[in-house]
Amino acid sequence: MNETYDFDWDDLGNLEVGRPNLGCWASLLAYRLMQYTFRDVLSKEVGLDKTLELFIQAGKLAGRNFCLQVLDKSLGFEPFIADLKQKLIDLKIGVLRVEEADLEALTFVITVSEDLDCSGLPIFGQTVCNYDEGFIAGIFFEYTGRDFHVKEIDCWATGDRTCRFNIKPA
């Protein structure tokens, strides 16, 4: 545990060169298999609460890098959200939709349908998109320079057909 790893976008590698035949798309099954087995193993190692906290932290790191590498921070809020929506669709992460936006208070309610993490899951009775919470918080942090608290209030796993997130300054 003495050694640590610092994430670098370049570590994702050159997908086109690396997979000339299979291309850059993989099965959602493979993604979920990795995520939920991580969840299993980590929860047994460090407990479920700590596991969820780690997922949020990892998601936030991903969100910040995603914003820096994929999105255009110079855009105004409306075109930024439009760009974000399109990129999330292009990368097949989910269908982001805004339900409420208060640009003065910086509070938002957004939904993500066909979410990578949960759509089609059985009803667990609790939200499971912790990685998404962090991912969204990371994007908003990079875009606004402020910390945000993102809480998933509805999830496929709680019986809804779309994930709904409350976003407000931390």
Partner: peptide, 21 residues
């Protein structure tokens, strides 16, 4: 949340709320 019949309508509801916005 456990109303299994309402689930497709919840998706429609989310879409409508987004359309309203």
């Amino acid at each position: 949340r456990n109303n299994i019949f309402a689930m497709p309508l919840k998706s429609l509801q989310a879409s409508l709320r987004h359309l309203t916005w």
